[in-house]
Amino acid sequence: MERELRDTARRLLEDKTVGVVVGYSWNRKKTRTTPVFVTKPEDAERLIFNPLCVNNLSVYLTRKYPDVRALGRIGIVAKGCDIRNIVVLMAEGQIQREDIYIIGMTCSGVVYRQELWEGELKPEIMPTKCHNCDVRNPHLADTVIGERVSFTPPETPQGVVFDRIREIEGMSPSERWEFWMGHFSRCIKCYACRQVCSLCYCERCITDKNMPQWIETSAHPRGNLAWNLIRAMHLFGRCTFCGECERACPVNIPLNILNQKLAMVAKEAFDYSSGYDPEVHPPLRVFDPEDREDFIK
């Protein structure tokens, strides 16, 4: 699989189909994977692909990275879940299909966090998204690398995140408040959740708007609540549940619960799941007279 990936990347760089391939490589000690920008054909040998390749590299496709765009047309190594984000970027007019070359990787799952890796991909170290994945064979790509994976996601979604959602739904409003305020109180306002997210591409985030200051930047409970809620709202119907924000969070705030719940609401209210079709716009971006109205009570 890696051989094929490297050969493909080298060919793309040699014939100038792309100016850069954004992919994964090893760190110095070969214990963790890290993003790499390959611009020379001979450096294609640095590319790797394995269950430690957790990063959603589509973040580098956004307008936040003019220096990556300056390297030329971008070839991107992407798993199905990463491609879902690319699809949203296309649906929202952030990138044109022809501006990128998608090297789709078939995938049997990744680890929730690289620190959990002990040499073998076991179900218990995989994130909830992998257990319910319907894009293990990339749904949109210029070329697909790897053998076709046969995997049918369970009919009823399964995993820790869904268990937790059910648990929270059983709580009283004050218990829920306590649950979330407890988690948000740890927030250090590092904005890793925003920065790692390819759908948080605003050049000026609302929390950086300070005339007036809409969102308090202080890491006190009020400011932390405001930040985490506004981010969740801004991702409604757009978030693909790739899980990058929760993985990036240095204080372990369970953002996947929030995001998956929002995805469930989007599905329920608008029959919409993000990241499958670039021609269909996210629900809060379009006006449709056929929209149901009975969900607002």
Partner: peptide, 13 residues
Amino acid sequence: ARKCIGCGACTFT
């Protein structure tokens, strides 16, 4: 350093 995504996790810890 091109891969830096500009969060503050390193500076805050």
